[in-house]
Design a protein around this nucleic acid. Structure first.
Length: 284
DNA sequence: CTGTGTTCCTGTTCGC
DNA sequence: TGCGAACAGGAACACA
């Protein structure tokens, strides 16, 4: 589920509860997610205060007062929900009816509970020394943040220079740009009117400008939509929120292309084993 | 080095 | 209605 905008929405949803909070209890309902939890995971968390909640690419980073950072990735199906004092609508579940796939439960001093649910278990959590975070293999090779100040057409030109791979594959590569996933790559390419099949290194300057602007624009819009769902529904689970109603191409095979004067229909093809949606008529 | 295919896991949807 | 197949928002890893 979660690409950059969803993770950012989760971060904003959890921050008011988590930042400044002390963890009093951490419950693991199983020994692993995608990977095993690290040694003494619970002991290293309990009693610690969370000093900041950040995001890098699709990772959530909870900085602790112990010098370590709790690193969380939501994989395909991970989500958080808030229960307890800060969630007035929280349900009370009988023990036997606890929702399936709740794997980790963090309890704060305030009584608030933050529950991590992940049916497919492609997500994972680990603890890393905060001052060495950027050197760690998980982060060392990550590319540029598409919403950061350095991301522009010139940077994009460098990132794609000489690449023979299809444009879509290049944009999904987290070592180039970090945080884009299948949906927003499809959407950004449609906005920029560029074919996912184009050789990545073949874009003109004007096309690079259009693409940089499209990437930023689609991510900004999705975060904004996520933000509005947060305000309206206290949703912290990183669901696509209302932005899914704004998809121009993703999961819209056969629909009319939304671009002015384009008579094309959205097609679905498969690239690297994953669905690509685009308009063959106007994306060149 | 670059680029591609496979794999992890469960839930939902679709065609018969 | 049931039942198997296809597919799903990610990315680590193996390999050509």
């Amino acid at each position: 589920m979660p690409e950059l905008p969803e993770v950012e929405t989760v971060r904003r949803g959890l921050a008011p509860t988590l930042v400044g909070a002390r963890l009093t209890h951490v419950e693991l309902r199983r020994a692993d997610l995608r990977f095993a939890f690290p040694e003494h995971f619970v002991e290293r968390l309990v009693g610690r205060r969370v000093s900041a909640l950040e995001r890098r690419a699709k990772y959530l980073l909870a900085e602790l007062d112990s010098g370590e950072t709790l690193v969380m990735h939501l994989g395909m199906s991970g989500s958080f929900r808030l229960e307890g004092e800060t969630a007035p609508g929280a349900f009370h579940f009988e023990r036997s009816k606890a929702p399936a796939h709740d794997h980790v439960i963090f309890t704060c001093e305030s009584g608030a509970r933050i529950v991590y649910n992940d049916p497919r278990r492609f997500g994972y959590m680990t603890l890393l020394a905060t001052d060495a975070l950027t050197q760690h293999p998980l982060f060392r090779d990550l590319g540029i943040e598409p919403l950061g100040g350095e991301f522009d057409a010139a940077h994009l030109a460098e990132l794609l220079a000489g690449a023979r791979t299809p444009l879509k594959s290049a944009l999904l590569d987290q070592r180039r740009i970090a945080g884009l996933g299948n949906i927003y790559v499809c959407e950004a390419l449609h906005r920029a009117r560029l074919s996912p099949l184009r050789e990545a290194g073949s874009l003109t300057k004007a096309q690079l400008r259009a693409l940089a602007s499209a990437v930023r624009g689609v991510l900004d819009a999705a975060i904004e939509a996520g933000g509005s769902t947060l305000r309206d529904h206290r949703q912290t689970d990183g669901a696509l929120g209302y932005f899914q109603h704004s998809f121009e191409v993703y999961d819209r095979e056969g629909a009319a292309c939304g671009h002015a004067r384009c008579k094309g229909a959205i097609a679905r093809i498969v690239q690297n084993g994953r669905s690509t949606f685009y308009c063959p008529a106007c994306q060149r």
